[in-house]
Amino acid sequence: MALNREFVGRAYEASAPYEVSRVKIAEFATAIGDQNPIYHREDAAVAAGHPDVVAPPTFPIVFSMSAAGEAFGDPDLGLDFAMVVHAEQRFEYERPIYAGDRLHCTTTITEIRSVGRNEFLTLRSDVSTGEGELVCRAYNTIVERGGAA
């Protein structure tokens, strides 16, 4: 089933800020096999010029998709999640993410297009502090295989 183009431009805000913790950063770094001490130890991060432990570049995937769940689950969008594959991902940083950050995330559906038999849907997540400082943007494109057939 073709995806509903009326969803382009819709924005979804996460219900609560995401609190970045040292423990979660260390868990994520361990899961990707990265023992860089800047992810694991505050003293190492501070010695490298950071205020606290730093999140790995792909860490925002942990929280940046939660707001989009509301859109994906909306039957009016017409997405068959069982057929979804991740097509593209990009992170654009204004500054690194640190333990102690409280991050607000708003996800907007920026594009829906058909390529052959597949439907491509692109989301942009704007991640900012409570004071409105933009920290990073995440761009996520998923493909629904056979969706345009």
Partner: peptide, 30 residues
């Protein structure tokens, strides 16, 4: 997970650069 592979690319680039905060933009297609 595509994101697991992307994370290995992140390790590669941050290990080369010497600091994870040096990566200001990182994107891939799976």
């Amino acid at each position: 997970h595509g994101m697991y592979t992307m994370a290995q690319g992140g390790r590669f680039i941050t290990d080369w650069a010497g600091d994870p905060g040096a990566v200001v933009d990182y994107g891939v297609r799976f």
